[in-house]
C-alpha cells in the first residue's frame, strides 16, 4: 500500500470518522430518512476518497459537513421533495461550531469513547487481538502465531470489529433517542 494512501486513511481516521455522528445527527435534524443518511454519508466518503489533495483542507470536519449538506441539497432538488423549511433554512443544523483545534479535540474524545465502547463489546479473543495490535503494534500474522490460531481467524475477528464500529457510527448518537427510533421503525413497518 502506498504511503500516500496510508496518510489518507490516517487523516480520515483522525478527522472525518469522529465527525460522522454529528454529521448524521445534522441530517436527522433536517428530516432526512435513515436510508438517505447512509447513502449521503457513503457518497461523501467517495468524494473524500477522490480528493486530489486532502492535506489542503484546514477544517476537515467542517468540510465533511459541507460536502454532505451539498449532496443532500442536490438530492432534494433531484427528487423534487423540496420542503419549505429546507430552503428557508437557518443553516445551524449543518454547522460544525468550533475552530479547527477544538473541533479536532472534541472529535478525538468522541472517537475514543466510541472505540472504547466497541472494543469492550467484542468477544475476548477479538479484544486480545486489538490489544496486541494497539499496544505491541503486531501484525495479524504475528498475532495469529502468539494466540495459536489461524491467520484466517484473526482476519475474521478484525473484520467483525470493523463491522461493529461501522454499526456503532451509524447509530451512535441514537442511544438517547430510542423513542424516536421506535417511532421511525413503526412508521416504516406501517
Amino acid at each position: 500500500m502506498s504511503a500516500h494512501l496510508q496518510d489518507r486513511i490516517k487523516w480520515v481516521a483522525r478527522y472525518i470518522i469522529p465527525a460522522e455522528p454529528q454529521v448524521r445527527a445534522s441530517l436527522r435534524a433536517s428530516g432526512a430518512a435513515p436510508d438517505v443518511i447512509d447513502d449521503l454519508i457513503q457518497d461523501a466518503y467517495c468524494r473524500i476518497a477522490g480528493l486530489a489533495d486532502f492535506v489542503q483542507i484546514e477544517r476537515p470536519a467542517a468540510y465533511f459537513m459541507q460536502t454532505v449538506k451539498n449532496l443532500h441539497r442536490d438530492r432534494l432538488r433531484r427528487e423534487r421533495i423540496i420542503r419549505f423549511e429546507q430552503f428557508t433554512e437557518t443553516t445551524d443544523p449543518f454547522v460544525i461550531p468550533f475552530g479547527s483545534e477544538i473541533e479536532a479535540e472534541v472529535g478525538a474524545r468522541r472517537e475514543l469513547q466510541m472505540v472504547d465502547d466497541v472494543l469492550h463489546s467484542l468477544p475476548e479473543r477479538c479484544r486480545e487481538i486489538f490489544r496486541l495490535k494497539r499496544i505491541e503494534g503486531l501484525s495479524q500474522k504475528e498475532i495469529a502465531r502468539i494466540l495459536h490460531v489461524t491467520e484466517t481467524i484473526v482476519e475474521n475477528d478484525v473484520r467483525k470489529a470493523v463491522k461493529a464500529l461501522q454499526a456503532a457510527l451509524r447509530g451512535y448518537d441514537m442511544k438517547d433517542e430510542s423513542g424516536q427510533r421506535r417511532a421511525a421503525d413503526r412508521e416504516r413497518a406501517g
Partner: peptide, 28 residues
C-alpha cells in the same frame, strides 16, 4: 464507484480501532 469511499471508511475505522498507541508507544 461508491466502493472506494466505503473501503476508505472501513480502513480508517480499522486504523481508529487498532492504530492508537502503536506510534507513541505509551502505555495505552
Amino acid at each position: 464507484p461508491r466502493r472506494s469511499g466505503a473501503l476508505l471508511r472501513a480502513q480508517a475505522i480499522l486504523d481508529a480501532l487498532g492504530g492508537e498507541g502503536t506510534e507513541t508507544g505509551e502505555p495505552a
